[in-house]
Design a protein around this nucleic acid. Structure first.
Length: 558
RNA sequence: UGACCCAUGGUGUAAUGGUAACACAGCGGAUUUUGAUUCCGUCAUUCUAGGUUCGAGUCCUAGUGGGUCAACCA
């Protein structure tokens, strides 16, 4: 690996600030999720950035839940988010923080703004607020409540706080400029009335601050130096700055970067929620989901996700990253650490006619060619074995090198095998192959220098263990998620083959004791991880990712 | 229709006014008891037009294309 001496633009800003002595060289960031859903791979990008910066600059990074909307937020999400951040390999300093911790302070600052004539209570209904806001090319109109006296505002704000208004009857608004080019500066809402139970503060409040009024002040309270967020908040920055300056407190710098988009993947939390609620996926951690917990369950490692995040970089350019880059990242990691095993996804029985009935032997197999320390294991070999249906063709095309009638292949670590006869059922399906082996080729070596074009994996029939194997494909049929239909019909874009369950798979006996989450390479088939549905009676594997497969490519071209 | 932001191979990024590079993908080959891994080779890039400069991917202006914004969501 070559040392990369360039840094992304966010780190460049921080580097410049450090060198110029801004904040006395102190660096502090935060990761601010709203607890209204599970974290996804896009959040991983932000987590790696924020926590990564803190590590690199000897600063700290807070985990702060942006929990200002009680109707959507739940403790379940808080718990899953903390678990996912830790699983990714990051730890925040001290307790996890909540914007709701600052509700009292935020309220006091709101009172201060009222006293200074910078905020007022508006009783316009939401619809009219919107109309009064104007359009992009035409200025808005002042609210009729804009010029209330400080005392009246104070009184009404207290009435909001104490439950004197119903939901939607009043808001506290900043008094800025109804003709500002930036819509967020046209007297934005600071507080709204919501008689709702909050997951942390319970029923203490019936007014809740908005994101724009909360985020910057929370950053300020925590003494965050660099508040990194995604591009869609770019237009909010003038308001972020206005609030801090109007109140007159420590002023962090907001910096925006482009969020992650992946091919064949939906990333919006709203859509992911719909997938869960519609039952199109089983849960937030369904291995088809682009959530951190989904990838974890599918067999991704934290290292692979961090390495992916390092590769995609940080910019302000809207981009669409190929999901293949993520898949390659997990292959790279698993290749170095995953023990090799034999697994047969779709078995065909093979009877080796010249192998003595009732006899068996053990063959040595290498556990991981990338890691000599991983050693070897024994695999039982006998007269009846299974091979994968994909490794046999009765009428093979030109470039198919595997087993076919009259053809010889190598059984990996065992013997050369020749197919003599194909047995079919009434439906014409191949159900068994009658073969012979060459005893002189023990270990798969031919003393006469004879070559075979393919080596296939196999499993001894009488002690192979049954398993369920779940194969996954892209969740979304569309490559570009932007191309799919708007509205509820977008659910039709879900790939109907996103999951295939194989009930008849066979694996090595040693796998019976594998524990949930363990990863293996089933040789020639891909990487597989033990699913949490696995029991002593029934092993369940998720395919994490296929191996790169040139044969699959040429097959497709044909 | 206004404001703000963005624009480098197919994709993602680097080049900090001085030889346009890296990764992934693709293609070809070598090695291989995994059609994997590894290795080698190869294809292909500065949106357009002006300007500043000895010199522009980089700075300026305009255009074009894309994104965001008219929630009491974040």
């Amino acid at each position: 690996m070559t040392e990369k001496n360039s840094v992304d633009f966010v780190r460049q800003i921080i580097l410049d600030d450090s060198e110029s002595g801004k904040h006395q060289g102190r660096v502090q960031t935060r990761f601010p999720p709203e607890p209204n859903g599970y974290l996804h791979i896009g959040h991983a990008k932000s987590i790696c950035l924020n926590f990564g910066i803190a590590q690199e600059f000897g600063g700290k990074c807070n985990l702060r839940f942006d929990d200002t909307n009680p109707e959507k937020e739940e403790t379940e999400y808080v718990d899953s988010i903390m678990e996912d951040v830790r699983w990714l390999g990051f730890e925040w300093e001290g307790e996890a923080l909540f914007a709701s911790n600052y509700f009292d302070q935020l309220y006091q600052w709101a009172v201060q703004l009222i006293k200074e004539g910078k905020a007022y209570v508006c009783e316009l209904p939401a619809e009219e607020v919107s109309q009064f806001r104007g359009r992009w090319n035409e200025p808005g109109k002042n609210s009729p409540f804009r010029d209330r006296s400080v005392d009246e505002n104070l009184e009404l704000f207290e009435k909001m706080r104490s439950g004197g208004f119903k939901d939607g009857e009043a808001t506290l608004r900043a008094k800025i400029d109804m003709s500002a080019k930036n819509m967020y500066l046209r007297d934005p809402t600071l507080y709204r009335v919501r008689h709702a139970h909050h997951h942390r503060t319970g029923d203490k409040w019936c007014i809740y601050p908005t994101y724009d009024y909360t985020h910057g002040q929370s950053d300020s309270i925590e003494k965050v130096t660099h508040s990194v967020c995604t591009l869609e908040f770019e237009n909010h920055r003038p308001l972020y700055d206005w609030c801090l300056d109007a109140i007159g407190i420590f002023h962090p710098q907001q910096i925006e970067f482009a969020r992650l988009n992946l091919t064949h993947t939906v990333m919006s939390k709203r859509k992911l929620l719909q997938l869960v609620e519609s039952g199109l996926v089983d849960s937030w951690d369904d291995p088809r989901m682009p959530t951190i917990s989904g990838f974890r369950r599918k067999g991704y490692t934290p290292e692979s996700i961090r390495s992916f995040c390092a590769k995609i970089g940080i910019t302000k350019t809207n981009s669409l990253t190929e999901i293949g880059l993520l898949e390659q990242s997990i292959r790279e990691h698993l290749n170095t650490i995953a023990p090799r095993r034999f697994g047969i996804l779709n078995p065909i029985k093979v009877v080796i006619e010249n192998y003595a009935e009732g006899e068996s032997e053990e063959r040595d197999a290498i556990n991981n060619p990338q890691d000599p320390d991983a050693g070897t294991r024994k695999i039982k070999f006998g007269r009846e074995i299974y091979i994968d249906r994909e490794d046999f063709m009765e009428d093979p095309p030109k470039k198919f090198f595997r087993l076919a009638p009259g053809r010889e292949v190598r059984l990996r670590y065992a013997y050369f095998l020749t197919c003599n006869e194909v047995i079919k059922n009434d439906a014409g399906e191949v159900i068994e192959l009658r073969c012979t082996y060459d005893p002189a080729t023990a270990g798969g070596k031919s003393p006469d220098g004879r070559k075979v074009k393919a080596t296939i994996h196999w499993l001894n029939a009488d002690d192979a263990v049954d398993a369920e194997v779940r194969l996954y494909e892209h969740l979304l049929s569309f490559e570009n998620p932007g191309d799919m239909e708007e509205g509820p019909d977008w659910l039709k874009s879900i790939n109907p083959n996103s999951r295939t369950v194989l009930n008849n798979a066979k694996v090595e006996p040693s796998l019976a004791s594998a524990s949930v989450g363990e990863s293996f390479q089933f040789e020639r088939m891909g990487y597989f991880a033990v699913d949490m549905d696995s029991t002593a009676e029934k092993l369940v594997f998720n395919r994490t990712v296929t191996l790169k497969d040139d044969w699959a490519k040429t097959k497709k071209m044909k």
